[in-house]
Write a protein that binds this DNA or RNA. Structure first.
Length: 265
DNA sequence: AAAGAGCTCAACCGCGATCGT
DNA sequence: AACGATCGCGGTTGAGCTCTT
């Protein structure tokens, strides 16, 4: 039993626009700290856990929205072959994506896709082989997994080159996709030279750009590991221009329309 | 047009890890 | 070292939406 959510007066279920507004306002003003105290201080009848979840999975301004691109999907498959169901680890390699989002996408799309292609989503081996072998947990054998991942990407017609595949493969990595405080947000918005495209599609055919935003300046990003930098550099190109359009809404005229935050999606 | 089936994803639950005393 | 509080993760659920018949 999680004693963070035991108060019977605490509200559950879908978040309202008003609740979202309160939480966003509070965090942008005060930053993230002590989730247990957040609901009380923000005037919410929610438990801290629920607030944290809502913020990390939905309200965080650095989140990408929409379906994963082909490239992101390939990254997820590759990372999954290496890390298994460690969704938060996988998400840490995909800036702007949450563990929950990746987990959902895996369960609803990628699993089926792989099965359709004759690949076992658990082992990343061809189903015909898997049927003859006892199930092998992905985390147990690092060396064979590198091969598996490469094979998987290749089978998918993947466009990842060897460096990218190796980068994905390396043990653990970007631990901290930096969170952004209110001050930083203002800085980013004022510095951003992004076009104000109004496209809402996350279509991978869209030419990708990313803002002139140096992540190393933010948060506790103490990754001294060069590998992480490689991964980060590769992944930064995944940022969708349109994601930053919501930041203006957050900071200026955020007028909630529904629980679908910011009415953008 | 209506009903049922199938799908998606936000939110919840429970557990283990970590931190502070 | 022990214990309670808090956090974060992965699995699961179910409401609402879309598709099919």
């Amino acid at each position: 039993m999680d004693h963070l959510c035991v108060n019977r007066y605490e509200k559950k279920g879908p978040w309202t626009a008003e609740e979202d507004r309160k939480l966003v306002n509070f965090i942008l003003t005060n930053g993230q700290c002590c989730w247990r105290a957040v609901p009380k201080l923000a005037g919410l009848l929610r438990c801290g856990k629920s607030c944290r979840l809502r913020w990390t999975n939905y309200l965080r301004p650095d989140l990408k929205r929409g379906l994963l691109s082909d490239y992101e999907e390939k990254m997820v498959i590759g990372l999954h072959s290496k890390l298994g169901n460690r969704w938060s680890k996988i998400a840490s390699h995909l800036p702007g994506r949450t563990d929950n989002e990746i987990k959902n996408h895996w369960n609803t799309h990628i699993k089926k896709k792989l099965r359709k292609m004759g690949i076992d989503p658990l082992t990343h081996k061809p189903l015909s082989i898997v049927e003859q072998e006892p199930i092998e947990q992905p985390l147990e054998e690092p060396t064979s997994k590198k091969k598996n991942m490469s094979e998987t990407v290749t089978r998918l017609g993947g466009s990842l080159d060897n460096d990218q595949v190796m980068a994905i493969n390396l043990e653990y990595g970007v631990e901290d996709v930096p969170l952004i405080d209110a001050e930083s947000l203002e800085l980013i918005c004022s510095n951003s030279t992004m076009s104000s495209s109004t496209s809402t599609s996350s279509n991978s055919s869209t030419e990708l750009q990313f803002p002139d935003f140096d992540w190393s300046d933010y948060g506790n990003n103490d990754n001294s590991n060069g590998v992480d930098n490689i991964i980060e550099n590769n992944m930064m190109s995944l940022w969708d221009v349109d994601d930053f359009s919501s930041w203006d809404l957050l900071l200026n005229d955020y007028i909630p329309q529904s629980s679908s935050t910011f009415g953008l999606f």
